[in-house]
Design a protein around this nucleic acid. Structure first.
Lengths: 332, 332
DNA sequence: CTTGCGCGTGAAATCGATTTCTGCAACGCT
DNA sequence: AGCGTTGCAGAAATCGATTTCACGCGCAAG
């Protein structure tokens, strides 16, 4: 592992000059040539740790997500990586597991390792970003907003998405529409449920809070919530499920109960992962996960490069679609 | 951000003593107390970059995987994280995207950032690990073996798994059993196909190479391969699919063709991700992804801590199971 | 009563880069 | 001709920790 001193010696210049060749360019073409030749000969690449120590920040950005096993977040991670890599940054993926303490630990690490910036989908409304802000590290919130903090954010319109999904169920003639949303301390869960209420009200129906279930954003949560709904004295005839994994669980229960999205209205917020069987009759709010990641990374890179305009919140569009009733009719 | 010098000043000792309090313990209890009090007061945490520069390695381990969107690898990542975190290490997830060049770049970064060690599921047989070995960084190969290199590895028995899966199909009475396996330059793909051949031969059947398809290890690969198989003049009556995502694709095609694992024999290597519908009659080779990750991390940490026994290859067991025919009969 | 060893401690070197400071030379301007 | 720029390059400081070296003290062995 060649160092800058060895390159300097071989090229017959000082280490400072070698550094200048690779960073600024106030170096005569003559010496620059010598340095480049020497560097090539020794296969020199600067030690990132030393550079980081001096520069006070590395070329790594941290991406903190609450559930690495949720394809929505891995897809988002791909987006972040796309943008970061092409700018010469690498991405560290940190899985907070929806746990505020674990998340805090990763935030500390990001600071202590002098990472260039952080993109975070906060584990909960109570997530504490102050360690970052007080050290003026660039931060971009993604998917889950900056609740109160004045930082950049990339979001989708959760309320509108929830409303569109629920309205589609109304249009299909369902009357008693339930809702399975996420934990009550997660903002996206609240907004999506608000959309459900909006849609019902604007259709002249009254949202029945007994048909609103909160669950964790995972498969087992969706399963349990759907079981509770179906066990009600007056069960719903349709349901809006506010996240992709919960939809998987809810669908399992629905099929187990001998029903399917063709008879029991089913709308999901987020694409079903690896859906071996795209259920017919199901309405889906497509969330542009990868684009969200790309956007967030681009904004973060701007900040890292000194952009100091006031923080912005970018809201990306959702598309809503309903599978044709007969799409995979033979599955029945 | 307090430094070691500020702590030293406040405690009335030298920086060296502060460092010793946190690392070795050749310090009198009296001074140690002073130092700890001062450190607590200033909320001191050592700057990881400076430590890494001096120590020549950080407390980060890199995990390089070929497909972050494959739940098998995210599950493996969870296992790595479990073990690493409890040892005070953090994990950087790098997605090589089955691309040897991208992988090489991540390997370089791991070296230049002085990461403590690397766990890698190689993108292909041609992956070049020499940059790591020549700098004597600890490396553990996981899932995909060390083809020729003398390093630690954590594997499953791909050949036995392929054989067990195929044998299950034979037992269920299928005669013309096809195989969809991964890219021919990926070792696990070769071994699983070998298992398929073994099972057929030991059942007195002759493996028909026309029924062997190679595809990428993703959903679209499985879909395309299954389409080719079904389009054959004499299509198979059953298929062994050598990875989880390809199984999803193959199943989609199977259902589209009006069939299902109850009539068309279907065995998969690896659990179906988020299977909304666990197909009845399907045989699955369960791969202990999380345990593989934990094992690999533990081995790596041993190496980092100076273990210099000869390299070992650990082979974990697969479990094979077949869904009852009538499990979800109502889905039909 | 010395010699020697071990222990605790501080001073200083070290890791490998970047960046500031300083000096020198060439050039242009009055 | 004298003076202020400008440009280039080396010397040295710097980032913040760890680790080596050296010193002084106390205690035990000779």
């Amino acid at each position: 592992m060649a160092t800058i001193y060895e390159v300097a010696k071989l090229a017959g210049v000082s280490p400072a000059t070698v550094s200048r060749v690779f960073n600024s360019n106030n170096v005569s073409e003559e010496k620059a040539g010598l340095v480049r030749a020497a560097a090539a000969q020794l296969a020199y690449t600067p030690n990132r740790t030393a550079r980081t120590l001096r520069r006070r920040h590395s070329e790594i950005i941290a991406l903190i997500i609450p559930d690495i096993e949720n394809p929505f977040f891995t897809s988002l991670a791909r987006g972040v990586e796309d943008a970061a890599r092409s700018a010469g940054f690498s991405v560290v993926l940190c899985n907070s597991d929806e746990d505020v303490a674990k998340e805090a630990q990763y935030i500390d690490i990001a600071v202590l390792e002098n990472m260039a910036g952080i993109i975070i989908a906060a584990a909960s409304d109570d997530s504490d970003l102050h360690p970052l802000l007080s050290r003026s590290r660039p931060v971009v919130a993604v998917d889950r907003g900056p609740h109160g903090l004045d930082i950049d954010a990339v979001m989708v319109d959760n309320r509108a998405g929830g409303m569109a999904a629920t309205s589609a169920l109304v249009t299909h003639g369902f009357k008693r529409i339930g809702c399975i949303t996420g934990p009550s301390d997660v903002e996206t869960a609240q907004h999506r449920a608000d959309g459900w209420r909006d849609a019902l009200r604007s259709a002249g129906l009254t949202p029945d809070e007994a048909l609103l279930e909160h669950a964790n954003y995972r498969v087992d949560g969706g399963r349990a919530a759907m079981q509770r709904l179906l066990a009600l004295p007056e069960p719903p005839d349709a349901v809006f499920v506010a996240n992709n994994l919960m939809s998987v669980g809810a669908l399992q229960v629905l099929y187990d109960a001998g029903s399917s999205p063709e008879t029991f209205g089913f709308a999901a917020f987020g694409d079903l992962p690896f859906a071996a069987l795209a259920p017919a009759g199901m309405t889906v709010v497509h969330v542009p996960a990868r684009a969200m990641g790309r956007t967030a990374a681009t904004m973060l890179l701007d900040r890292i490069n000194g952009d100091d305009r006031p923080p912005r919140t970018v809201v990306l569009r959702n598309e809503v679609s309903t599978n044709p009733e007969n799409a995979l009719a033979h599955v029945r």
